[in-house]
């Protein structure tokens, strides 16, 4: 379970990116975090694993308070939080396998990682995950040889091999085409279900947010302005989050037939 209490972040320029966010995410819940650019979505998830240091407030992962941890304890806590990035953030000149195994860095010593001597079960798990996302045959390819969707799958493997309790997902589909976006979102969703993971998914696409989450949180200027069921998003709510616009087309009910069709199509790919 993740709990944020009065989380604030002020950047050096004096602007508040987050102004007191309270949020509680039970185990195994997948939430979508929506909001306009600059609302503080990225800052929020980076404050959780302290890639960005929060200015004020507390973050609890289970019973562990994260904001006051020393750097060595923080490293241990980071192992429990897998992160997936917008531009995949794979180390491009390393192989796919090295990228996946880098998720185990928090568990192995420096020399073992330096000579790429990872424990046998880590290597097995890496292969199992690559097989799960259909990239077994790519293990020895360099990461920059992969397509966008494939790279994001490797990014997912890297996050999952950490054996996390929580996934922090920052705009996973922002650089992907609509179909690949759906496949990636579905994959993240399935994997969360399989492993009982909680996840915070930052996403711009309201429709995807509705399709693949159990709860939607709307952030505006560093404050939560909506927190509820995906189908509770109506034009009034979206206007409150993003501003005035014609929202009817965006929140059209997802056509079930279309979804099934998509599923079948993917199975044949």
């Amino acid at each position: 379970m993740l709990r944020l209490e009065g989380l604030k972040k002020r950047y050096k320029t004096g602007d508040y990116a987050l102004q007191g966010v309270d949020l509680e995410i039970p185990d195994g819940q997948v939430i979508a975090l929506i909001g306009p650019s600059g609302a503080g979505k990225s800052t929020l998830i980076r404050c959780v694993n302290r890639l960005v240091e929060p200015t004020e407030g507390k973050v609890y992962l289970g019973d562990l308070e994260l904001t006051t941890l020393s750097s060595s304890k923080l490293r241990k806590a980071r192992r429990r939080m897998g992160m997936i990035f917008q531009e995949y953030a794979l180390v491009e000149r390393l192989t796919v396998m090295e990228n996946v195994l880098s998720g185990r860095l928090g568990y192995v010593g420096f020399w073992a990682s330096c000579f790429r001597k990872f424990p046998k079960k880590d290597i097995q798990e890496a292969y199992r995950l690559l097989d799960r996302v259909g990239l077994m045959h790519m293990a020895d390819k360099r990461a920059d040889e992969l397509s966008g969707g494939q790279r994001q799958r490797v990014g997912i493997c890297r996050a999952l091999i950490q054996d996390p309790d929580l996934l922090l997902v920052d705009e996973p589909t922002a650089s992907l085409d609509p179909k690949t976006s759906r496949q990636i979102m579905r994959l993240i969703n399935e994997l969360c279900k399989e492993r009982g993971l909680a996840a915070i998914i930052n996403i711009h696409d309201v429709l995807l947010a509705q399709m693949y989450s159990q709860r939607v949180v709307g952030l505006k200027l560093g404050e939560i302005v909506y927190d509820g069921k995906p189908d509770g998003l109506n034009p009034a709510v979206l206007t409150n989050i993003y501003g005035e616009e014609d929202w009817e087309a965006t929140i059209e009910e997802v056509d079930e037939d279309e979804l099934v069709e998509d599923e079948v199509e993917e199975a044949t790919v």
């Binding site: 694993n49 490293r75 880098s102």
Partner: peptide
């Protein structure tokens, strides 16, 4: 910087 961020987020030393 995001590649560096990603490795940091795994809990690496």
């Amino acid at each position: 910087p995001t590649q560096a961020e990603a490795i940091k987020a795994t809990g690496s030393s």
